[in-house]
Design a protein around this nucleic acid. Sequence first.
DNA 1: CAGGAGTCTGGACTCTGTCTAACCGCCCGC
DNA 2: GCGGGCGGTTAGACAGAGTCCAGACTCCTG
Lengths: 139, 139
Amino acid sequence: MPHLTDPRPQLTERLREHGIGPTHQRIEIARALFARMTHLSADQVLAAVNARHAETSKATVYNTLKLFVEKGLVREVIVDPTKVFYDPNMAPHHHFYDVETGEITDIEADRIAIGGLPSLPPGKVAAGLDLIIRIRSGA
Amino acid sequence: MPHLTDPRPQLTERLREHGIGPTHQRIEIARALFARMTHLSADQVLAAVNARHAETSKATVYNTLKLFVEKGLVREVIVDPTKVFYDPNMAPHHHFYDVETGEITDIEADRIAIGGLPSLPPGKVAAGLDLIIRIRSGA
DNA sequence: CAGGAGTCTGGACTCTGTCTAACCGCCCGC
DNA sequence: GCGGGCGGTTAGACAGAGTCCAGACTCCTG
Ligand SMILES: [Mn+2]
Ligand SMILES: [Mn+2]
Ligand SMILES: [Zn+2]
Ligand SMILES: [Zn+2]
C-alpha cells in the first residue's frame, strides 16, 4: 500500500467527466500536468511522461493535449512566441510572464478588475480574455 | 513631382530619431509597416517589400524587425501560436484577436480600466501589459 | 588606394508542430 | 476461441517560422 494515495483513479474519473476515454497514455499526460499544477510545454510533457522509461510518442502527446483543450480539461497559454504552454488551472486567472527566464506565474482573477470593456464587433462572441503582465529583473 | 508626398524622408527621420541607421532596406520595411498601420507578420513584411521586384532577403527582414523592436519603433504582438505580428502603433492599446480569421484589431487603452493590479514579484519590473480578447463568430 | 565597420545575403540549420499510413489492442458478435 | 471493427498509438516524413553563418558588399576614413 503506497504511502500517498495513487492519483490515477482520480485522474481517470476526471477524464471521464470530460468525455475523454481514459487510456494509459492520457492518464500519464494528465498526471504530468495535474500533479505539478504548472504551465508545461508539449516538449516538457513529453519529457515528464517518458522520464522513467519511454511510454508515449510525440504524436500522442500533441494529439492528447489538443484533445484536452477541446474538452476543456486544460487551456493553452500563448505568451512565448516559440511554443505553447498548457495550463491545468481552469479557474479564470491571468499571468505574469518573465521574459528573461520564461517563468509563468498565475494571478487570481478576482484580484484584478477590468472595466469598460468595449462592445465586440457585430456577430462576434468572446472566446476568452487573456491578460499578460510581462516582467523582467529590475533596472 | 508625385501626386502624394514621398513618405521616405519622413521614415528616414523616424528611423534616425530611434537611433537606427536609415538603409534602403530598413526604409522599405518601415514603409511596409507604417504605410499600412496594420499588424503584419515577418512573412507578410517580406512579401510586401518584395512585391514589385526582389529587394530584401528573409534574413534582413528578421534582423530588421528585431532591431525595430529593440529600438522601440514597433512592438511584437503575441496572439497566434505560429507566428509573431509586428505593430507600428506604439500608443498603449489592446487587441481583439479573431481566432477563426486571424484578424487583429486595436482597442484604445483609455476605453479600458484595469484596476487592482497585483504587486510585482520582488526585484522585477513591468516590461509590458498585454490584454487580448479572443473572439469568434457568434453562436 | 587600403582598411575597417556596419550591413546584407543565400542557404543550411533548428525547432515546434502536423500529417500519414501502418499497427495495436480491446470489445463484440458469432 | 475466431474474425472484424474501431478507437488509439506510433515512427518517421514533412511543413513553417525563425536563426545562424560565412562571405560579399558599401561606404567612410586615413
Ligand atoms: Mn517560432
Ligand atoms: Mn510553432
Ligand atoms: Zn495559469
Ligand atoms: Zn495594435
